[in-house]
Each structure stands twice: as C-alpha cells, then as structure tokens.
Write a protein that binds this DNA or RNA. Structure first.
Length: 276
DNA sequence: AACGATCCCTGTTGGC
DNA sequence: TGCCAACAGGGATCGT
C-alpha cells in the first residue's frame, strides 16, 4: 500500500526523468482518475507542452510544480503505481494516464482500483481544495512531542485513527501506523488523549525511524497487485514488519500471538502483551 | 466539533 | 474444483 515511503520512493524515481523536461504528450484514459479536476480533460490539456520544474512530496501526495504556476498532483491511492517505460513498450492493464517527455520517456499511472488520481490545479484551485487541510509531513516536518501531545489532548478517538488522520500528520497509512505503535508499545485502541507524556514521546520517537527504514528498503510490497517501484521491482520492507500482517504469528519480542482487530474501520495488528 | 459509518473499486482470498 | 461473499484500504461525505 503506498504510504509515505512508497510515495517518496516513487518521487525519487520520477524526478530524474521528469524535472526540467517538457511534457510533449499527455493522455487521461479513465475519467475517474481525473475526478479531482473540475473538468477531467484539463488534466492532460494543462500538462501538454509545459515544462516540469520541481517534484516535491507532501504526505502521500506527489506535488509537482509546473510552468505557469500549475501544480501536478499525483496520489497513488491504494493500488496505484507509476511506471517508467519507452512509449512503445507494452502497457500494463489499468493504465489510466500516460505522459511522454521531450526525451521520449513514457511515465504511466497504473491503478486497478482507481482510488488514486491525477490532478493539475491552478493556484486558486489548490488553495480551495482539501489539500490545504493537509497536516505537517511526517518525515520532513514532524512536530515536536509537545505539539503532537497538544493535538492529542482531549481527543477520545483511538490513537491509531488519529495517526491515520492526514490533517494531524501527513504520510502515515495503515501499515506504518501499526508499526509505529508496536515499537512505541502503545495499544492501537487507546484513546489519543489518554496517552501519558512518555507515551506521546515514544510514539513520536518511532515515526521517523519506521518511515526511514521503509524508505531504505524501497517501501512495502504486499503482493503482485500492490505497490511496485517505477522500475517494476518490489519493495523489501515487508520482511521487516513486526506486526502488520503477522496476526497469528508470535511477537518477535515476547512470543505472544499477534492479534488483529478493527480500529476505526481499519485492520490493526498488535502484540496484546507488549502494547498497552 | 468530533466521531463513526458508508461508499468508492476490483483483484485476491477463504469458506463451503 | 468451483463459486461467491468477504476483504483490503485512503479519502470524501454524510449522519449523529
């Protein structure tokens, strides 16, 4: 599942191919992929003929600065991935968007479940879109424990749910949220406001290391369908996961069987002995 | 305002 | 073996 490490891996792969290049051809093949533009036809129309300036990332969004103050937004959703190919290479099924650069490189968006999208927005559109509610980036702008504690205080929502709230912190998804809580030894169902100062510090302390470890291993690829790197390789972080997807297996620390429950409608994996 | 539930979508999985 | 319901999940939206 593309979360911050997978999105950042994708950005780092695309940047050398796209930055400084002109998009000579752009095609949106699936209207749903362009749903975040008022007119989905604008997605391709606004990219065509324009130069890519800088590719940035905020949370799980790739935000690419284009000529004329346009922002090219890419969100991989749940099953989306980018592919770098030659224009004549065969396409994967579910290729919903294709851009071709002035160096004759094709950048394609493959997304079976269409939860992802591609948008190209003007400054005013960007300012009025939901992106303005995005919280600080979990890797680049991680708030202090004090600040994070303030965001948690008084909240009865589960800490797991709060960590997934992109308005609080942008970048964590289901896998890495579970992994952070496992290392911090905090139960995913704990009310966010009930965490002690030390527990808030522990949660905060493990956010960067977990994300950076994911990044160092090219992200997490759960199966063939899910996220792949733009060169088609699978991410290798899967084998380093401590709790996610390990329900029924022994905890690496104490041997207790890893449990799986639903928290805020999301599957949550934890050690009932280590996490309180 | 805060929170939970529901929906979108389709490939995979698990139960019968 | 084959069928089909359940499941996965980020984010928008709606109801309480």
């Amino acid at each position: 599942m593309p979360e911050l490490p997978e999105v950042e891996t994708t950005r780092r792969s695309l940047a050398p191919v796209l930055e400084g290049r002109v998009v000579v051809s752009a095609m949106l093949r699936h209207p749903r992929t362009g749903r975040r533009n008022e007119r989905s036809s604008d997605v391709a129309d606004r990219l065509r003929g324009r130069r890519v300036v800088t590719m940035l990332r905020h949370g799980k969004f790739i935000m690419t600065e284009m000529e004329d103050d346009l922002t090219w937004v890419i969100h991989l959703g749940m099953s989306g991935r980018m592919e770098i190919a030659k224009p004549n290479d065969p396409e994967q099924p579910h290729t919903h968007f294709v851009a071709i650069t002035d160096r004759d490189v094709a950048v394609r968006f493959v997304d079976p479940r269409t939860f992802g999208f591609i948008a190209v927005l003007t400054p005013s559109e960007l300012a009025t879109s939901s992106f303005r509610d995005l919280g600080p980036d979990a890797l680049l702008e991680l708030p202090s424990a004090k600040r994070l504690g303030e965001r948690m205080s008084g909240r009865v929502v589960a800490i797991k749910t709060l960590l997934l709230d992109q308005r609080v912190l942008a970048g964590l998804g289901n896998i890495y949220a579970d992994e952070v809580l496992a290392r911090a030894k905090v139960h995913p169902r704990r009310q966010a406001g009930s965490l002690s100062e030390d527990e808030v510090k522990a949660v905060r302390r493990y956010i960067k290391p977990v994300l950076e470890a994911g990044l160092a291993h090219g992200g997490t690829s759960l199966d063939d369908l899910a996220y792949l790197l733009p060169d088609g390789r699978a991410g290798e972080y899967l084998k380093l996961l401590r709790v996610y997807g390990r329900d029924g297996e022994p905890c690496m620390t104490c041997g207790t069987t890893i449990d799986k429950v639903s928290v805020g409608g999301r599957s949550s994996h934890f050690c009932p002995n280590c996490q309180h």
